[in-house]
Amino acid sequence: MSDSPLPIAAAGSPAAGGQYLSFRLADEEYGLDILGVREIRGWQRVTRIPRSPPFVLGVLNLRGAVVPVMDLRLRFGLPQVEYTVTTVTIVVAVEDRLFGVVVDAVSDVLDVAGDAVRPAPDFGAAVDTAYIKGLTSQGERMVMLLDAARLLATDEWAATEAALIAVDAEAA
């Protein structure tokens, strides 16, 4: 495990070949650049964080660091399910920040050639493609390659904060 700047940022370009950790989420398959993955751990209870967006489940102790964990189903607006034995938290690093994503199950490590990555088509308003940096196929399966930095983008979180302040105002 190195603390050097991660190649995740470089992987933001459309032709993003390399190794990906694939995982399942609501019957679809997604991939995260493996160079950004720090750890995979079984689901453990986290400490809830107040005044946070609903998809932020809380924080966990990663060898002394307090790391936020988000539920990717909630992040993508998918229906919530009970956590099972296969539910895992993937700890991902973006620049020097760590965060955990809870997914249904990890599946595989994929070798993806740069020219095998296709840009995500526009699905319309139903699916937000901002988090997806490309699509690739593994045999019959389609794998959506995620942009970890986008997952962590905080502008939406600021919006949540604004909403909370509005709630404060209404609460009284």
Partner: peptide, 24 residues
């Protein structure tokens, strides 16, 4: 432990700590 090292500042919370059982 600072919350904003990996997350962000939360109003009303000055930080976090690790308890004896390893939880936050």
């Amino acid at each position: 432990k600072s919350l904003d090292a990996h997350y962000r500042r939360i109003e009303g919370v000055s930080g976090a700590t690790i308890l004896g059982d390893g939880s936050v």
